[in-house]
Design a protein around this nucleic acid. Structure first.
Lengths: 185, 185
DNA sequence: GTCTATATTCCGATAGAC
DNA sequence: GTCTATCGGAATATAGAC
């Protein structure tokens, strides 16, 4: 519970990054809600790149813990949990961190880019293994290339968090349900 | 050919919006390459929102002409052309305009948002009709809901222009090819 | 339609006290 | 670890001449 200022800044920065974009929020947007001064934020993260790096790192850590916790569940349930996670992103009016980093890609320093790449590869590999396992168990329909299937699932679900800002809530549910249906045997 | 300054600004603005994001480029980024002053850009587009609006409008116009030109082609070829179009986006290191507008959504004024919504709906409906037609002709596999199929195709292809900035070129081709294969009978 | 010049505001970032 | 104070720069935008 006892969350440090540093952690609060990361959380708020992550929210702002995914709601508004990396170049759309300022140190003031972080310091005001936390009722500290912008200099205090700079103490924890001297530059905005440092904050971006910490956000990327945080996502890696969280996903790592998530995948460990999921390891014992069967593929279908793992995928359901994954899709539900994206549903909660959608409900909070944010977009997925991968798409957020991708559209702001050329605003990110090399260290941040590397961290984002490592995180993204973690997710893709986790999904790929999940799909392979589901196929081996006969739960999922066989597809030619499991990484490609993983990429398509990831793409369509993270893009949906973006697209439904423009269209409507219903479209998110449509896509989410369809992903599971299409894969199930 | 003879493209006016106004048109050049729109083109350049569109490039910058999709390469860097709406909040990442400035009037100077537009005026410098065109070798005019920032005030000259303001003459054509008093505020940045006016420029964003014109960019959205331009996409509507272009897509309208595109869909007219495609009308006589058969569904499979229409989809191929559509996917190739996204391939060219990927090669130019930009992302799709829908995702770019979506991630910068809360930086856009109401007029711009409405224009983006109209454009996006045009694309989705065009894709939905294409899919329905392809099914009717027996070219495409039947799916339960054609709008959902359209959403998934659109999502996965426009997200791919983002995702491959993080992973690799190959992943784009994988997804692109797979979309067509999955739909074909 | 483009220019010079400038107003204004905001941003990221730092120095130095507490 | 947080503060006050401030710097330097860049951004959007406008006024008015040509």
């Amino acid at each position: 519970m006892a969350s440090s200022t540093r952690e609060k800044i990361i959380q708020l920065g992550d929210d702002l990054l995914r709601k508004q974009g990396f170049n759309a929020f300022s140190y003031a947007d972080i310091s005001k809600p936390l009722q500290i001064k912008n200099a205090a934020v700079h103490y924890h993260f001297p530059s905005k790149q440092d904050l971006a790096f910490a956000i990327a790192q945080w996502h890696k850590d969280v996903f790592d813990r998530f995948s460990r916790k999921m390891a014992t569940k069967e593929p279908k349930d793992r995928l359901k949990t994954f899709l539900n996670f994206y549903h909660s992103i959608h409900l909070s009016e944010k977009v997925d961190i991968i798409g957020a980093f991708a559209t702001d890609w050329y605003s990110l320093g090399p260290n941040v880019q590397t961290e984002v790449q490592e995180f993204t590869e973690l997710v893709i590999e986790w999904l790929t293994e999940l799909i392979q396992e589901g196929m081996d168990l006969g739960q999922f329909r066989k597809t030619q290339n499991t990484r490609t299937t993983a990429l398509k699932i990831l793409s369509s679900i993270f893009a949906s968090t973006q697209l439904v800002r423009i269209t409507s809530d219903q479209d998110f549910t449509r896509v989410k349900n369809s992903i599971l249906e299409e894969l199930l045997n």
